[in-house]
Design a protein around this nucleic acid. Sequence first.
DNA 1: CAGAGTCATGTATGCGCTTACAGAATGCGC
DNA 2: GCGCATTCTGTAAGCGCATACATGACTCTG
Lengths: 362, 362
Amino acid sequence: MSTAPTVYDVAERSGVSIATVSRVYRNPDSVRAQTRERVLAAARDLGYVPSGNARGLASRSTGVLGLCFPDYADPDTDAEDDDAAMLYSDQIIRGMERAARRHGYALLIAASLKGGPESLVAKVAGRVDGFAVMARTVPTEELEGISRRRPVVMLAGPREDGDHLDHLDHIEVANFDGQRELTRHLIEDHGLRRLAFVGSAEESPDVEARFQGFLAACRAAGVDTPEEPAVRAAMMTQAEGARAADALCDRDGRPPQALVCANDQMAVGALHALERRRLTVPDDVAVTGFDGIPLGRLVRPTLTTVRQPMLRMGEEAVELLVRRLSGTPGTDPVSLMLPVTVARRASCGCGPEEQTAVAIGA
Amino acid sequence: MSTAPTVYDVAERSGVSIATVSRVYRNPDSVRAQTRERVLAAARDLGYVPSGNARGLASRSTGVLGLCFPDYADPDTDAEDDDAAMLYSDQIIRGMERAARRHGYALLIAASLKGGPESLVAKVAGRVDGFAVMARTVPTEELEGISRRRPVVMLAGPREDGDHLDHLDHIEVANFDGQRELTRHLIEDHGLRRLAFVGSAEESPDVEARFQGFLAACRAAGVDTPEEPAVRAAMMTQAEGARAADALCDRDGRPPQALVCANDQMAVGALHALERRRLTVPDDVAVTGFDGIPLGRLVRPTLTTVRQPMLRMGEEAVELLVRRLSGTPGTDPVSLMLPVTVARRASCGCGPEEQTAVAIGA
DNA sequence: CAGAGTCATGTATGCGCTTACAGAATGCGC
DNA sequence: GCGCATTCTGTAAGCGCATACATGACTCTG
């Protein structure tokens, strides 16, 4: 690799000044065609590539947007669960990459594994013009400081952290509305009344919002429900979903009429557990998920769920960042709520084919 | 956002020199604890984040690795096919991100849509210490120039481009060996002799290698086969796979005994087409794929295929780059061949459960 | 208590590029 | 051929940080 050639090398080789070399790249039309060709030829000969760092330094902008996301890679998670969990991030990455590209930005991604040693934000924040952070990968406090200096948008998080309402831009999905509508459907359209919500042990504002939506629908329909999820799974995986289903079946001697799972992974796990117990879905027990992962369409019975627009979330994040970057700085924090769709499929009793996809929220 | 604070601001506010501020971040132990705290406090107050650009410029390294990949997003592709195609890139991205993180790097990703206007490589190359390129996203010529100055590794590509053997590092998978072994299995273990290979219309060295492996197995077994794929699908999608299967069934009045598809997508499409024709797989026609996408385990019959280690490919790419970055510069180009596994499932006649997974290739 | 040795901090320079500004070259009308 | 408007190109000053080197404050030894 030796030491890479610089503008100086190219300038010398083509007999011009470094300013002209720079102009050839920044603003080709401002250089006489003949000169330009000489410069480009020299650059080609030398294998010259402009240093993004120097460029960024001089023009105080990087042309890069960032994304911090959690890495769920757990040694004790089986590969399949891991795959599905990552699908979530993958979609956001793809959405962001496409939108970023449209606007001429590249995308820098960095995952934090839980309790990583040094702050990855600092690393990312310093090299990008703005970035998105998936909820709970970075302490809110740290973000607030940074967000004073460059655009930050939080994905899928809550605005309030305890009693403190943060000042970040947010993009979230209609967790509450989606889960409420799905629950309403189970109660009113399928006549189910003994519903059990499978939540998660770890603090998750998304899951909490879903549970509240579940509760709201129950209350609205006069269905009696405890103020707590029936089960809090240790992790939101298929294995834990299966365990939760087993626990619920054993608990009262008979299973509930519906298992309302906080995500698709657990719902699929529940499906398997119920099958092992020779219970039929949806006749004996209805099962629903949340997320809309592809797997949900492939399992039998097909999984009724609430689809999240993850790709769009990534795109919206970029749009928001770009707007912030080009615009009026003093604007108030924005909070975007993306609509979800309830996909009624077989596992709630709606038949093998997808019946209806109702857009909800926002 | 106003203008971001710099070392100078932090230095002034904490009453030290900029060198000390710098040291607090680069080498905390070299600063007295008390001073360090003062500096950090000032930084916190100001919302200071070190500029990655300046840092990179001064230390001539960015701490970032890059990946250029193709974006298959076609308006005329349905979302499902698109999903699966991207899985390929997603896996590589994940593999690279993890390995990069282990080594303290972040990952910069940029997709090229076919015939994008300006060179995305230049954009990426200038901001990273080294990068990987998925085959056919960037002209080889351009890469060779750049690779003189920083490490570049080509993923899944061929070493030769026409008659010109390039000088880049390569990582590929055992396309030839994998397809040969799978074909051998069909011929010898299942006794099939009329095999049709479904390839692709566009130039793809991977598909070509697979076809050659297919041919080699046929020849070795004395099976008579044309020197060309039976079909060249316009795109490697489910829809095209279905179309290919239909074409082959109609062509000679009777279907071949086996459809050997160049990827899983097309194989799944073929499965659907055959089902519509009331042909049973594998009894009437065997079908095989290549890639090992998750969908292959979910379709019925489950798909016999050759699994590619995409995640590992991403990891190996990073390892290779890191080695180049830290090591002896003058080394010859490396070419890594990753082994694949033949997953024998139901669609070739091996029964519903996965029978054996045979590792093939170096 | 002088001199050597440590440790903490400051000074000064350069990383490779962009970009005002100034200066040279070219074209035009007369 | 001259003066002036237009290009085109060069000069020079940073951008924010890392780091070699110099300096100053102490501690320790004899």
